[in-house]
Design a protein around this nucleic acid. Sequence first.
DNA 1: TTTCATTTTTGTACAGGACAAACATTTGAC
DNA 2: GTCAAATGTTTGTCCTGTACAAAAATGAAA
Lengths: 307, 307
Amino acid sequence: MMNEDSAPSDGGLPIAAVERETGIPKDLLRMWERRYGFPQPARDAAGDRLYSAEQVGKLKQVRRLMDLGFRPGKLVGQSMAQLEALAQTHTPARVVPDVCAGLIDALSGHDALAVRELLRHRLFELGLRHFVCDFLAAANQLVGEAWMRGELRVHEEHLYSEEVKRVLRETLAGIPAGPQSPRVMLTTCPGELHLIGLLMVEALLRLAGCDAIAFGAQMPLSDIASAARKHRVDVVVLSFSAAYEASPQADAALLDSLLPDGVELWLGGSGCRGLKRLPPRATLLTLERLDACVSLWRELHPPAIAV
Amino acid sequence: MMNEDSAPSDGGLPIAAVERETGIPKDLLRMWERRYGFPQPARDAAGDRLYSAEQVGKLKQVRRLMDLGFRPGKLVGQSMAQLEALAQTHTPARVVPDVCAGLIDALSGHDALAVRELLRHRLFELGLRHFVCDFLAAANQLVGEAWMRGELRVHEEHLYSEEVKRVLRETLAGIPAGPQSPRVMLTTCPGELHLIGLLMVEALLRLAGCDAIAFGAQMPLSDIASAARKHRVDVVVLSFSAAYEASPQADAALLDSLLPDGVELWLGGSGCRGLKRLPPRATLLTLERLDACVSLWRELHPPAIAV
DNA sequence: TTTCATTTTTGTACAGGACAAACATTTGAC
DNA sequence: GTCAAATGTTTGTCCTGTACAAAAATGAAA
C-alpha cells in the first residue's frame, strides 16, 4: 500500500492504482488491452501489469474525451498528440477572463490562504452580484476545464470548491433570508454532490429579497416533494453539475408528478444545458435570467390582500 | 443505473451494487463464495449473481467486524445473530447520550432545516466548546455507527455532515484566528475528504486563542511541508477519519522527513486510534487533550523577548 | 424529419488458477 | 521467561479467456 502510493518512480503503477487514477475499472483496462492493444503495460516478476506514466496519461486523456461523447474505439488508436488536438478542437477556446487571473496559479500553488484571499478580494471589489455572476461563473468553468484537461489535480479542484463554498457561506451568513416571496427551496438530487451552483443561486435570491431556504445536497425526490409541501415553498430550485450521472430530464418529470400544484421547478447548472421536453412547470435557470425569473414570478403572483 | 438504485425490491442486488454498498471488491465477494460458501447469491436469467438484502446485511456486519480486527474465516460461518452478539461484545456499549436525542430522527426525516435548527440549538445551549467536545463527538460516532449498521443512507449521512460543516463554518467566521502562538495549520492527506474533525479542532484552537489556519482537504504531503515552511507554522494538524484508506502511520513517517525542524505534528481522528511507532515529533490528539497540548506547547516555547 | 429494427461496439460479469503479503504459530537462542 | 527468526495458514488481488447484454450507430420504412 505504501509502495504503491509513494513509489511511482519505479517501473510503473499496478492495475488497481490505475483504476483509482483514471476511474477506469480493472476489468475494462484488461479488455481494452485485448481488444485494442492499448494500453500494453509492462509486467513485473509475477506477471502483474505495470502501467507507465505515459500510458496512464493517455488513459486519462481518453477518458476525458469519452466524457465529451467520443467512443473509446476511435480514441485508443490515436497518438497522444492527436488526442490533445481533438481535445483542443472540442474545448471551446475561451479567453481567460481578466477577473480570473491568478486563480489557477494560486490553486496549483496549493495555497489555501492565497486562494481564499483572492476570492475575498474579488468579492469585495465586485460586490456579491458581480462576484457570483461574472467572477465565479467564469472561474467555475475555468477550473472545470483545467481539471478535464488534466492541468489541475483532484485536490486542487477540491481546494477551489472548498474555498468558494467557504467564502459564499460566510457571506450568506450575513444576509438573512428575506421575508419576501417567492419562498424558494434549494437542493440537489441524489447523486449530485456539487453545491457551488446552489450557493450561487442562493446568494442571488437573497439579494433579490427572496425567502431562500437551502437544503443540503442529495435529497431523494419524494423528500423534496414533501419538504416543499411542508415548508409551503413557491419554487424548488435544483442544480445539476455537468458530472451528474443520472438524467435531470427524468428527475424533472418525476418531480412534476410529485410536487403540489402551483409550485414551480427551476433547473440550473451546466448539467441541464439543452434539455428539452420539460414539464410545463419547469424552467431552465441561468444566473443572468434569475432576476427576470423572480420578477416574472412576482408579477404573476401578486401578494394577496388578506393573509 | 436507475433500476439498480431505485428497485432493490426485486430479486436482489447485482455484484457491483454490493461492492458499493459493502465496500468489498467484486473479486473478493466471488472468492469468499468459493472458499467459504458464503455469500451464496441467487442468479438471474443470465447467470449473474443477485444478492439478497439479508446477505448484504450480513456482509456489512462481517466487514464491520473485520474493521475491528477479526479475520473473515472466523466470521462468515457464523449466523447473523452470533455476529451481532460478537459486535455487541466488542462495541463499547455506549448509551446514546441525551444530547443526541432527536438527531437520528431528524436525519431520517430528511429535513435539512430541522437538522440545522437542532444543531444551532445545541450550539447555543452548550456553547462552542461543549458543543464540539460533547455533542459533536458523540453525534459523529452515533451517525457513523448508524451508517455502518445500515440504518442511515448515504444522503442522510451526507446531510448530517453538510449541516455540521455549515454550522461550524458560520460560527468560525465569527471568531477570527487569534494572534497568539502556536500558529497551527490544519489539513488532511490526499484521499481523506472528511473535514468535520478538522473543523472541530479548528474551533477549539480558535477558542484557545491560537493562530489556526485551515487549509482545505487533500494536500499532498510535499505541499504540506512547503506550506508549513512558507507560513512558518509551529504545528501541523492532520485529521484521519476511520474511512481513510492509506496508512496514517506511513503519512506521519514521510511528513516527519519533510517538515522543517521544530514543527510539531498532531494527528487526530478515529483513523489513527492505536497508532504506534510514531516519529518523535508526532503526537496523538484527542479533543479532550487538545487544550493540554496547546498549554504544553506554550510552556515549552515561551514567547521570545525580542522579535 | 421521425421511428423502428438490425448490427456493431462496448462494458460488465463469470470461472478457476496462481501467487504473495499479512497473519499466526512454533522453534530456537539468549 | 523473553525476544526473534523460521515456518505454516489464511486471505486478498491479479491473471487468462469466455460470454452476454446494454448502448450506440446504422440503415430502412413511414
